[in-house]
Design a protein around this nucleic acid. Sequence first.
DNA 1: TGGTAGCACTCACCACAAAAGAGTGCTAAA
DNA 2: TTTAGCACTCTTTTGTGGTGAGTGCTACCA
Lengths: 348, 348
Amino acid sequence: MIELTQRDQIVLEAVITDYIETGEPIGSRTISKRSFMNVSPATIRNVMADLEEMGLLHQPHTSAGRIPTVKGLRLYLDSIMRSRQLEGSEKERIRDALQTRHQDIRELLHGTSKLLSQYCRQAGVVLWPKLSITSFKHIEFLRLGPFDIKVILISKVGLVHQSHIQSAEEITQVELDKYGRYINELLQDVPLSKVKERILREMESAKTLFDQLFSRALKMAHRAIQGSIEQSEVYIEGRTNLLDNPEFADVEQMRRILQAFEDKSRMIRLLDETLKVSTGIQILLGTEGELSEWQEMSLISAPYGRATGSLGVVGVIGPLRMDYSRIIPIVEFTAQFLTQVLEITDEG
Amino acid sequence: MIELTQRDQIVLEAVITDYIETGEPIGSRTISKRSFMNVSPATIRNVMADLEEMGLLHQPHTSAGRIPTVKGLRLYLDSIMRSRQLEGSEKERIRDALQTRHQDIRELLHGTSKLLSQYCRQAGVVLWPKLSITSFKHIEFLRLGPFDIKVILISKVGLVHQSHIQSAEEITQVELDKYGRYINELLQDVPLSKVKERILREMESAKTLFDQLFSRALKMAHRAIQGSIEQSEVYIEGRTNLLDNPEFADVEQMRRILQAFEDKSRMIRLLDETLKVSTGIQILLGTEGELSEWQEMSLISAPYGRATGSLGVVGVIGPLRMDYSRIIPIVEFTAQFLTQVLEITDEG
DNA sequence: TGGTAGCACTCACCACAAAAGAGTGCTAAA
DNA sequence: TTTAGCACTCTTTTGTGGTGAGTGCTACCA
């Protein structure tokens, strides 16, 4: 761990907050004026030289001021910054925006990502609840063609997943309805993470007790659920907000970033990763992640869900130079509130 | 209608094809060399001056060559250009790409928009089939909370629409299941455009014949179908391809364009409009549409669907300067092929 | 009379130089 | 340990002149 004197910290903080505000390298003169300790620019220069040696600051060229490095930002976020509290009116705004849509969970999640993007003026992301974390509610088999079957799976929070399977033999809708009734009864309210073993268990016993029909139903259910249980979806809203950031004025860079968004599966993997790691707010800075296009980007995320386990993740994506002290509490509160809303929905 | 001499046409075509290729203003010298009629640059200049007067060409500044105006492009597309035929191998490529995914209609449509974007190196769009054009297949009412009901509606092509309604009185799943069975029987294979009147008719007779339960079921179905019948969805893929076009190198412009995409409902309205107008290929050039952000953009679209009516629209969005003669047949063939695939799917 | 050659003119673009400005590192003094 | 001063570096801006592409116009030719 790096040892920083009181003054080092103050200077680092000053550089970072100024940089976040202006986006430009900060010189010693500026800091000497702003920060309250009365020291001359020359002194600040010495401190800055030290900080640069430690890898916390960086100088784009000899005659420029300093900007924070990722390492510097990390240190700042972890041990210097205190994020300010959200005011009542701000909380109110979030509540209002989300409460009105809370009937339909898709609307709710979509609205959340829109809200985050508008409020933070960056891109807002919401990772859908994974099926595996909620309970089974209903399954429906529909015959589309002689061998084509559409399976619709509804989880307890009201999420609808669909998948498509093909059966080896021709099958009628009447049979499929029987399958449906059987499976629905069998799996009612079973947590989807346990569905697989439940089916397998049932298969064992069904082998002897029931006829072939049920065995086929089980197989079919198994395949369908298998297919959708790990499917994830993500809402990314407000991408164009990112273009307002002067650091992305360069076309080449902009392209790289937008391209990273285009591939949703990578986004999902990234968010999924954060879901596994921690239960609180999380910040992923540029090069720390494994995404190469991501160098100048930063992700602030927080899991939402219930006490029993996180359903998904909400977050904000922006440039490294984001107003963390403002956005962190917004993301945090949004996740909390979303959790609360879902708690209610989930009761019925 | 504007009268153009043979030579005017040749010059106009030469300017446009050259401009499409290079993206830069074309001078009289270039044309004099390329086009096969042996005339001097000076002559061409006179012709160009005429064309400019007619509003078909435009000169960015005094000492630059000419670029076509929207009006010029329109004239070219309507009466001069002959789009080339797709080669067998190209058709093959499209067939291959789509055939493999044709089990699930969502996959199919999503794949189509991806294919178009990759093949044309522009943005590919696919407007979902509107419910109103296919037939009813299945409905399912699910109780999420005491008053919250999720309604899932499946159309004959296999599209799943969900909506959320709230009931005035508490209701049990058992009741809802009854509703479902009743409605499913009632509406089996009814074209969704006729569902509304069918329900209304049934309501009339049910009022006297059946009990309150069925009346409630009908009301509920009516509300749910009402809500989803006009819902549309659109896939837009390959947005970042647009960034490769040199005319969008300017950041400000790029932002405008991406912003236009961000608002999907406007996209949908735009595509929906083209669906109403015509049954063949359609080209919407820049300022011709009512979208103001759209100035330098162009949309090539073709409806897909069945003989009985169009389901939706596929298209390509790119800069005004697109290789129309290449892209038009691609879009055309894709729409045709998609129609064919859906025809098969629809039989079962 | 339609086409062509010639020429002066316009304008964007490029390269280069000079000036301005911001900020540093170092040294010597308080 | 801090500060003042100063020379130095490097970017950014501004200006300038040259270059080249392309035009419009006029006079000339078949």
